[in-house]
């Protein structure tokens, strides 16, 4: 029986640095395996769509412009992604990877949550086609 069994912890803590971190000012180094934003490399993609089949939250979509010449654009909805990395696991050609540095993706508009991956000219082509079909739409809105 004792009273104040934790008083020793408290007194020792008085002379120690705080256990908390001053987060936005000081950044904690992230582990290598941290699952952050998804990245897609179109050069190795064969368009098998295995990544899309198992996505639990319908966050990725592959827009095939020309399958023979391997012109693919991936639409990635960051706000839907649950960061489970199942797509990375499913990809047999190492097209997909998750960043361990980009994990702060909060935004005030919806626009930054929609990302297009692909060759620059393909993405440009897709966006132009979308604007042509629906002139009222926002420039980043993809075709329906």
């Amino acid at each position: 029986m004792s009273i104040g069994a934790m008083i020793g912890d408290i007194l020792r803590s008085l002379f120690k640095k705080p256990a908390t971190q001053r987060y936005p000012y000081e950044r904690y180094p992230t582990p290598d395996r941290l699952r952050g934003k998804l990245f897609y490399d179109p050069t190795k993609c064969t368009g098998c769509q295995l990544c899309i089949k198992d996505c639990p939250s319908d966050a990725i979509e592959l827009i095939v412009l020309d399958k023979v010449n391997k012109r693919f654009v991936m639409r990635y909805n960051i706000d839907r992604c649950t960061y489970c990395a199942q797509c990375v696991q499913n990809c047999r050609f190492d097209c997909l990877s998750m960043s361990n540095e980009q994990y702060e993706m909060a935004a005030l508009q919806r626009q930054p949550f929609e990302v297009f991956y692909g060759r620059d000219e393909d993405v440009q082509f897709l966006l132009e086609r979308a604007t042509r079909e629906d002139p009222e739409a926002q420039p980043c809105q993809p075709p329906a």
Binding site: P31, R33, L34, C84, A85, Q86, N100
Partner: peptide, 15 residues
């Protein structure tokens, strides 16, 4: 857990 699996809460270890 974060270092081992990549996330603090939903570890997504299993397939």
């Amino acid at each position: 857990l974060e270092g081992l699996t990549g996330n603090r809460v939903n570890y997504s270890v299993n397939v």
